[in-house]
């Protein structure tokens, strides 16, 4: 194994692990101010919004329709009450069909 690649991988591993680990361990058992707690509890839903948009519309460069069809499929299935796995598989199937048709 190439030493400099090995060094690179270990370095990347360390700097990736630090932000994942520090808050979970340093904040264990600490009671944060109520406002901060509320903000931290909001984060998962805000993150989901930011992870979905605009990314979902840009999954295929130069073809916004591909993203729109995929997004429409995912939102329709989810709003209809399908569980997460069904939303995922359903959206993949629908986009495969769409891809084969055009």
């Amino acid at each position: 194994m190439n030493t400099s690649i090995l060094l690179l991988i270990v370095g990347m591993a360390v700097v990736t692990y630090i932000p994942r680990m520090l808050p979970l361990t340093l904040l264990e058992g600490k009671e944060l101010p109520e406002f901060l707690q509320s903000v931290l509890r909001n984060i998962p839903y805000a993150v989901l919004g930011a992870l979905i948009f605009p990314g979902i519309l840009l999954i295929r460069e130069g073809d916004i329709w591909f993203g729109l069809v995929g997004a429409a499929a995912a939102f329709t299935l989810a709003i209809a009450g399908a569980n997460v796995m069904v939303v995922v598989i359903g959206s993949i199937l629908l986009l495969s069909l769409y891809h084969l048709m055009i």
Binding site: Y45, L48, G49, L51, I52, G55, I56, I59, G70, A71, A73, A74, F75, L77, A78, A82, N83, V84, M85, V86, V87, V88, G90, S91, I92
Partner: peptide, 8 residues
Amino acid sequence: YAMFVGLL
């Protein structure tokens, strides 16, 4: 992305 939508 579909998973994120399904979770949200």
